[in-house]
Design a protein around this nucleic acid. Structure first.
Lengths: 341, 341
DNA sequence: CTGAAAGCGCTTACAG
DNA sequence: CTGAAAGCGCTTACAG
């Protein structure tokens, strides 16, 4: 019933536990080849699998990395998770995953549990209320870091830890400029929750760039950071702008702060008989891989999501620099959804 | 530097370590309220976080669940992962995630590592070579189960452990029937890797049902279980069938064994000037959420992916039944991509 | 109800 | 190079 133990291996090989340990786990002290062989053989014959929990306790390092996302089924986060996985593997670490369903209580719990499991580092993906972090959470993170834990945040710098930050503000500014350069003159916005930093930055970057061109959005609506959030916001927008199929005239260009919301918006409009880009244009943000084959193809700001995830792990693992903010550029990609006749 | 220890809490509360342990972790032996309060206060003041590694060692249970998927960025797997997460949370377990990039060496490594971490259960999602499992892997799993570890497989029953199996064969048969009933008379297949059980079952279920209707696929091609696999297979198919835009006549109806491949196929055909469903029809399998807004909307077999993930965890956690095979039905959904004029 | 003590499975100075 | 022993931070019979 009980798993094979290092002691079992040592006995069978006729050596001490210490020696078995040194053979099986690349210690600097290398035992003689004859002994080493006996130990390895014994381990193989017995099917020995080291107990990582015991190792962690003895070594004071678990080799565990905690990743917290809002929703693992959201392609934005699953792409980041893929990058995290890849980087973790090359660093020979394991990843503990938590998907919070955008519930802050669950998030707090997850952080506590990861700390309890003594994860070497915790990566928080998915931004929250700007700057604000739960008091308890903050205290816990503080102690965690004092004990050598590393924290890295994606997209929402905290007062502590390191961060990988997409350049939301400037990139959506560039998107606005590109759209204006393409001939668009009327704009509207589908924003995200006002409490979420990423949503606010993207909206502001876009609107401010428009302003520098002497333009102002005709309407702004907002919704959740989800497909359904985009869908319902788009209906309100259509009403506000009195959008009609085949109304003629230059279509208004809408900026949705995420691709997923943009997709929901297009679906909503289609339900109203409106065609993109003929009746209304739209651009998103993120460049979600699964959406590359969408029709019409979506103008957006491409973010290297996998790289972002991988980079977060790398920051978490190089212990020398703390408090680092690493900025990641986005790339404007104009496709059919903003094409003017 | 070192984290606060149970001993620290005990000292501050003026009790023994045993008592502190009993207060902080719902033991059946409940200490007096006065004492309990002192302990809790001390723990709070010190910011005590129990060391899960030490607890695991002492309790011989880690509260860890291992999930292994082919690719966490693939919506099929991320949906399953979401269900796994949800079920794990209600069971108060943590999930260890591995994304293998469809590399069997990585998969073997992940299994070993999960076993080393003494995960209470391991869920393998994503089918592999039918029936075949690496010899070493099998031996390792055997010992793991002997030691009380549970293994659950999604979509590919092994010789051991439990399984959650989508009814691939019968569901694709129903899809074929529905398509025939809808008036389709000419069929073709885009299959997956011949070594993968899921791909084979879906293909066979479809072809056999066609056979019962007195029909045979005109052509079969195959590719990887990915968007690109579907893309390139679709080009070969177009050549084989000599598909031309606006050729007239009833369009051939293609069955792609996954939605993701179907999307790739549609993109490939669009590049050739072919329109779905006018020039060629297509149905997929899975009903990926992110693809619900695709144009044309995709006929498919809907699988309750999240439920499947959740169910796998439940099976893993109810220790009484082993070797259980739980079948999950798929539901045929006909949409625009197979619509006849 | 409470405590002293053994034990979970490893690692790692410290001696030899 | 190798081993005896302490220690990592908890839990849990076993006494009291």
């Amino acid at each position: 019933m009980a798993a094979v133990t290092l002691q079992d291996v040592a006995v069978r090989a006729g050596v001490s536990q210490a020696t078995a340990s040194r053979v099986l786990n690349g210690s600097s002290r290398i035992p003689g080849e004859g002994v080493a062989d006996r130990v390895r053989t014994a381990a193989r014959e017995l099917g020995y699998v080291p107990n990582a929990q015991a190792q962690a306790l003895a070594r004071a390092s678990t080799g565990l990395l905690g990743l917290i996302v809002h929703d693992i089924a959201d392609p934005y986060f699953s792409s980041i998770a893929r990058g995290v996985q890849a980087a973790a593997r090359t660093a020979r670490k394991q990843v503990l995953l938590a998907s919070t369903e955008r519930d802050y209580d669950i998030e707090r719990e997850s952080v506590s549990t990861f700390i309890a499991h003594r994860a070497d580092a915790i990566v928080l993906a998915g931004s929250r209320q700007s700057g604000h972090l739960d008091r308890d959470l903050e205290a816990e993170f503080g102690r965690y870091q004092d004990n050598g834990g590393r924290v890295v945040v994606i997209g929402q710098p905290l007062a502590f830890g390191s961060a990988v930050e997409p350049e939301n503000h400037s990139a959506s500014g560039e998107l606005a400029n590109a759209l204006v350069a393409a001939g668009h003159t009327q704009f509207a916005i589908i924003g995200g929750p006002g409490s979420i930093r990423t949503a606010v930055d993207r909206r502001n970057g876009f609107v401010e760039a428009l302003g520098r061109c002497g333009l102002t959005p005709l309407v702004e609506v907002s919704g959740d950071f989800t497909r359904d959030g985009g869908f319902s916001a788009a209906r309100r927008l259509a009403a506000a702008l009195q959008l009609h199929p085949d109304a003629g005239g230059p279509p208004t260009c809408v900026f949705a702060v995420t691709d997923v919301m943009a997709i929901g918006a297009i679906a909503a409009w289609r339900g109203l008989g409106l065609q993109v880009p003929r009746d209304v244009c739209i651009a998103g943000f993120d460049d979600i891989p699964t959406l590359r084959d969408h029709t019409p193809s979506l103008s957006t700001v491409a973010l290297p999501l996998e790289q972002i995830g991988a980079r977060a792990i790398e920051l978490a693992l190089c212990s020398d620099i703390d408090g680092l903010r690493e900025r990641v550029a986005g790339q404007v990609v104009l496709r059919d959804s903003t094409k003017l006749p």
